[in-house]
């Protein structure tokens, strides 16, 4: 076995490198990236909600500053995209774990991922359209 030192950051590459991966592997990469992103968002979100306790001025100022930044909207869309991808793929993994539809895991992924894309498009139009 390679020691930790010899391995370096090889493991990180192997988790996230999409080259040569099949559909299941790509789904795993997406799942792990969205998981990490969503956890980060969750705790930032909880942290910023604290400002609700500081009265209307503080909160509204915070919202105004956020509204003025284009990044917040894009960030929100990322959260929605992450949630949809992670959630729908999670359904696939949950079903598979009871040995349901394992031979059709690829088709299941295509189906659910299409659903996620439709959802993302819907929210993108909803948020940025018009």
């Amino acid at each position: 076995m390679l020691s930790r030192e010899q391995q370096g950051l090889n493991w990180l590459l192997q988790w996230f490198d999409p080259r040569g991966r099949s559909i299941g592997g790509l789904a795993f990469i997406l799942n792990r990236i969205t998981a990490l992103g969503l956890v980060l968002y969750l705790y930032l979100h909880l942290y910023y909600l604290r400002q609700l306790t500081m009265g209307p001025q503080v909160w509204n100022a915070f919202i105004d500053s956020a509204e003025n930044s284009p990044w917040i909207g894009i960030g929100e869309l990322f959260v929605i995209a992450g949630g949809l991808i992670h959630g729908l793929n999670g359904l696939r993994i949950a079903l598979n774990s009871f040995n349901i539809a394992v031979p059709y895991q690829k088709q299941l992924f295509y189906g659910l991922f299409t659903l996620a894309l439709i959802g993302i498009a819907f929210f993108a139009v909803h948020m940025f359209g018009a």
Partner: peptide, 15 residues
């Protein structure tokens, strides 16, 4: 594992 799956499903439904 079951806790992870069930909590995930609840999060999905509530969301």
């Amino acid at each position: 594992w079951l806790t992870k799956i069930i909590s995930g499903l609840i999060v999905f439904v509530v969301l």
